[in-house]
């Protein structure tokens, strides 16, 4: 079975489709004859140009959902057009996972998650990293019906294809009843300065080995000196040292910078899957056996309390 038609869930920010949405459009384009997109929000039509440029011919507009949490209404809207598609590509994101779960239960079809690669063998095949990315398992759907793929950020490079603007088509959002009653009351934005974590060429991350929340200023200082972004392991996010938006790993951001500098991070499998794709990895850890050293290009077995202040001084002096 060749893949005929793929629907891509495009998430919008104020500056247009998210990077992951464009990556998924690019991947879909290489696999299917026809790619269409679905999005929601007050100004979906504004994205028609970009979405078309990346390969979608139609942009289904579920409209402004007001303060409703998107999971249930968007899943309902997709379910309404599901019979016209072989597959739907959904980004691994907060709303993406909600929509995928709802859609799967609604249509009584399975869902494949944490996808980092796609292939074709009769139908679509998927790749998923397991054991911290040491092994890759390959999977496929065996039944009939819409195939739901939830794909991780940075699994594909986004490339425009120069297509014309997508035709915008209004998509009905069916009444979601009780399932649609989750309401966003207010939004809180945590300010960040400097390059974004998932876009920066240099990422400096700190973990529990820093010893205290105060020492995280080292990470901020290093990030600033290297014109990079500051990241973190989940251990120190959970401990409240830094906001969640800093977290790198399975439940946090996937980063693939030119340089990743891990300071006092053990290198648990869930951390590794989020940064193993970095071009160059430097690790500072006092434990020679720390798993982070298995992926490091340069590993310094040493105390962050000594190495980091010296590194900051050396960089300041340049």
């Amino acid at each position: 079975m060749a893949i005929n038609k793929i629907l891509v869930l495009v998430e919008l920010t104020e500056s247009g489709p998210t990077a992951t949405s464009l990556e998924l459009l690019t991947a879909a384009r290489s696999l299917a004859t026809t790619v269409e997109a679905i999005s929601w929000g007050p100004s979906v039509a504004a994205a028609a140009g970009t979405v078309g440029e990346y390969g979608a011919t139609t942009l289904h507009d579920a409209g402004d959902l007001g303060s409703a949490l998107p999971g249930a209404p968007v899943a309902g809207a997709i379910a309404g057009v599901a019979s016209g598609f072989d597959a739907v590509f959904i980004p691994t994101s907060y709303d993406g996972r909600d929509i995928a779960g709802r859609l799967s239960a609604k249509l009584n079809v399975p869902v494949l998650t944490n996808i980092t690669g796609l292939g074709e063998d009769g139908g679509l095949t998927t790749e998923h990293p397991v054991f911290g990315g040491a092994k890759i398992v390959k999977a496929k759907f065996t039944g009939a019906g819409l195939q739901i793929f939830v794909i991780r950020a940075k699994s594909f490079a986004a490339e425009p294809a120069g297509g014309a603007a997508a035709a915008v088509s209004a998509l009905a959002v069916p009444e979601a009843g009780a399932t649609g009653t989750a309401t966003i009351v207010s939004r809180h934005v945590e300010e960040r300065t400097g390059p974004k974590l998932d876009e920066a060429a240099v990422v400096v991350s700190g973990g529990r080995g820093l010893g205290s929340a105060d020492n995280y200023t080292w990470i901020n200082d290093l990030a600033k000196l290297l014109n990079g972004a500051a990241g973190a392991s989940r251990a120190i996010v959970d401990a409240g040292w830094v906001p969640y938006s800093h977290q790198v790993g399975q439940t946090g951001k996937t980063v693939k910078p030119t340089v990743y500098l891990a300071c006092g991070i053990s290198g648990a499998t869930q951390h590794l899957v989020g940064m193993k794709g970095s071009k160059n990895i430097i690790a500072i850890n006092k434990d020679q056996e720390a798993p982070i050293f298995t992926v490091a290009d340069l590993g310094i077995v040493g105390d962050v309390n000594k190495v980091i202040p010296a590194l900051i001084e050396a960089l300041k002096g340049r």
């Binding site: 809180h188 969640y244 938006s245």
Partner: peptide, 9 residues
Amino acid sequence: EAGYDEVTA
């Protein structure tokens, strides 16, 4: 992605 939302149900 940006911080957090207050959500009720």
